[in-house]
Amino acid sequence: MLSIIVPCYNEEETVPLFYAAVEKIRSAIGQSLEYIFVNDGSHDKTLIELRRLASQNKSVRYLSFSRNFGKESALYAGLKAAKGDLVTVMDADLQDPPELLPKMIGMIQDPEIDCVGTRRADRAGEPKIRSFFARQFYHLINRISSTQMIDGARDFRLMTRQMVDAILELSEYNRFSKGLFSWVGFNTEYISYPNRERVAGRTSWSFWKLFNYSLDGIVNFSDAPLNIASFVGAFSCIASGIAMVLIVVRALMYHNSAAGWPSLVCIILFLGGLQLLCLGIIGKYIGKIFLETKKRPIYILRETEQSLKSK
């Protein structure tokens, strides 16, 4: 059986289109299907659409959160609920082409392949500033982290049960799925396809959300920022020591201790800024540790298709 996990946040327009697109190629897939829609605290009629699909088709399941917990929590919940021998993750907006599924299933039949991933061949239609920062993020993360991530890789991938079980063992609160998929290892082959626009609705991913998401990825999979903060701190101390020696020598030689106040203020402001930067980096890591030690649940369920049947 193939489990199709679909995180949904305000996707009332796209859910029916996605379901129809997959059903259209169901015979080509050649396996029994299990839909797992995860309603991540949507404010529109997404849940109503999921209830309707679940009442019409027994292969449609859904999980509805008590509030918005984020896509990472939705992915984890879907993986945890999946029962299939093969599991795929797809977006409801059809930016992940369902017609690739038959080819992906054929590829994963190779015993040497544990995962078939997808990546965008281009970023056509995406704002240039977003494309630039996305490319810079992948370039940076692959230089400072031992976990390599593919530029343009999508969450859309087909995984074996063994790989899914390995991912579920990583029950950390602060999740970055692109990194987790890579960290667990397993042999992955990629399929490229041209970038696609959403079929309906509006994306919930603003530039600021993507920026914060990229920061989470860096913090979760690299300690390089901490090393940089330590280096900057050490360099500042050495530079400050040399500056103090020069100031004392100049005062003894020229007897002019009052001169140089502008430069002194600039130095103080510069060092103060470096200290705040380093404290911010350290604080980011401490904040992640703080959230992990709380041991809060990754998500809270409010409703499933089982509760719908019991009413």
Score class of each variant (00 low, 15 high):
3 S>G: 12
6 V>M: 07
23 E>T: 06
27 S>Y: 02
27 S>D: 04
29 I>K: 03
36 I>L: 12
58 K>M: 06
63 L>I: 13
73 S>I: 10
73 S>F: 08
78 G>L: 04
83 K>S: 08
84 G>M: 01
86 L>F: 01
88 T>Q: 02
103 K>G: 10
105 I>P: 06
105 I>K: 06
114 D>R: 01
118 T>V: 03
118 T>P: 03
121 A>N: 12
121 A>V: 11
125 G>T: 03
131 S>L: 05
132 F>H: 07
133 F>Y: 08
134 A>C: 13
134 A>R: 15
141 I>D: 01
142 N>L: 00
142 N>C: 00
142 N>W: 00
143 R>I: 06
148 Q>V: 02
151 D>K: 03
155 D>K: 12
157 R>C: 14
162 Q>I: 06
164 V>A: 10
166 A>D: 12
169 E>A: 07
174 N>Y: 09
180 L>C: 06
182 S>F: 04
183 W>Y: 14
185 G>W: 00
189 E>I: 14
197 E>A: 15
209 K>Y: 12
211 F>T: 05
211 F>D: 07
213 Y>F: 08
214 S>H: 15
214 S>K: 15
217 G>R: 01
221 F>G: 00
224 A>E: 14
226 L>Y: 10
228 I>R: 10
230 S>L: 15
234 A>H: 11
240 S>F: 12
243 A>F: 05
243 A>S: 07
254 Y>R: 15
256 N>E: 10
258 A>G: 11
258 A>Y: 13
262 P>Y: 06
263 S>T: 11
268 I>C: 07
270 F>P: 01
271 L>H: 09
272 G>F: 13
274 L>Q: 12
276 L>M: 14
276 L>G: 10
277 L>A: 15
279 L>V: 08
283 G>D: 09
286 I>Y: 09
300 I>R: 13
302 R>F: 13
307 S>R: 14
308 L>P: 02
308 L>W: 04
